[in-house]
Simulated scan of single mutants.
Amino acid sequence: MSVGAGGGEEGAVNPEMNTTPLIDVMLVLLVMLIITIPVQTHAVKLDMPAGVPPPQENTVEPEVVTIEVDFDGTVIWNGQALSSTAELEQQIMNAAAKSPQPEVHLWANKLVKYKSVATVLASAQRLGLTKIGMIGGEQFMD
């Protein structure tokens, strides 16, 4: 009487490959690769000048122009309300023609529609103003 699986020879070779040693070797190689790779540093190397910079001879403070856009879309140029977009564009052209150009500080009310602020910014860019900064962002920190 024979005990075991039937239908084959007792000494038959299993045709499947044993992959356990192959996986072990691959894991060892992976660990060795990770250990030997140098740590990547994400830094930008700059050659900075040494010493004290030379003093600037022309230290003229730039003129500052304040443009406010009120909650209803009214544009205020240095404290004076402008009645139309044409008047705003004339003021911008005058400021852009100055040398050096004045710094423009744009303050927008928290309740103003985006379209009103975008109109002022687009006009300033189109007419050549380059020094524009948004101020008053602390009102949006609620």
Results as ranks from 00 to 15, higher is better:
Trp107Val: 09
Gln90Phe: 06
Ala97Asn: 08
Thr74Pro: 01
Pro49Thr: 01
Leu88Met: 12
Glu57Arg: 03
Ile132Ser: 03
Thr19Glu: 01
Pro54Phe: 03
Val3His: 15
Tyr114Leu: 12
Ala108Tyr: 00
Pro21Leu: 03
Gln40Asn: 07
Pro21Tyr: 10
Ile135Pro: 11
Asn94Pro: 05
Asp24Thr: 08
Asn109Arg: 09
Lys131Gln: 14
Ile23Leu: 13
Leu129Gln: 03
Thr119Lys: 11
Val112Pro: 04
Trp107Asp: 14
Thr66Tyr: 04
Gln101Asp: 02
Thr41Pro: 04
Ala43Ile: 06
Glu61Ser: 13
Gly6Ile: 13
Ser99His: 00
Ala5Gln: 08
Gln101Ile: 05
Gln56Phe: 10
Ile67Asp: 05
Lys113Cys: 01
Glu138Gly: 12
Gln139Val: 08
Leu106Trp: 00
Pro49Gly: 00
Leu27Val: 09
Met93Cys: 10
Gly51Trp: 04
Pro38His: 01
Thr20Glu: 14
Ala50Pro: 00
Asn94Lys: 12
Leu82Arg: 05
Pro49Gln: 08
Lys131Gly: 08
Leu129Thr: 01
Asp70Ile: 06
Ile76Phe: 01
Ala108Thr: 05
Ile35Gly: 10
Gln40Met: 02
Val104Gly: 02
Pro38Ser: 08
Leu106Val: 08
Leu29Thr: 05
Val31His: 05
Val64Gln: 14
Asp47Met: 12
Lys110Ala: 08
Gly4Ile: 09
Gly4Ala: 15
Asp24Ile: 13
Ile132Thr: 10
Gln101Cys: 00
Ile34Leu: 10
Met48Gln: 11
Lys98Ser: 04
Lys45Pro: 05
Thr66Asp: 08
Gly8Leu: 08
Asn14Phe: 11
Leu111Val: 02
Ile35Lys: 05
Gly79Gln: 02
Leu46His: 10
Leu33Asp: 09
Ala43Thr: 02
Gln56Ser: 06
Glu87Ile: 02
Leu22Tyr: 00
Thr59Glu: 10
Met32Val: 11
Gly133Asn: 07
Gly133Cys: 05
Gln80Arg: 00
Asp72Gly: 09
Asp70Met: 14
Val117Tyr: 06
Ser116Asp: 15
Ala5Thr: 06
Lys131Met: 13
Ala122Val: 04
Glu68Met: 10
Glu89Cys: 09
Asp142Glu: 12
Asp24Gln: 12
Val39Gly: 02
His105Asn: 11
Asn109Gly: 07
Gln91Arg: 15
Glu103Pro: 01
Leu46Phe: 15
Glu138Lys: 04
Gln91Ile: 05
Thr19Ser: 03
Ser83Tyr: 01
Glu63Arg: 11
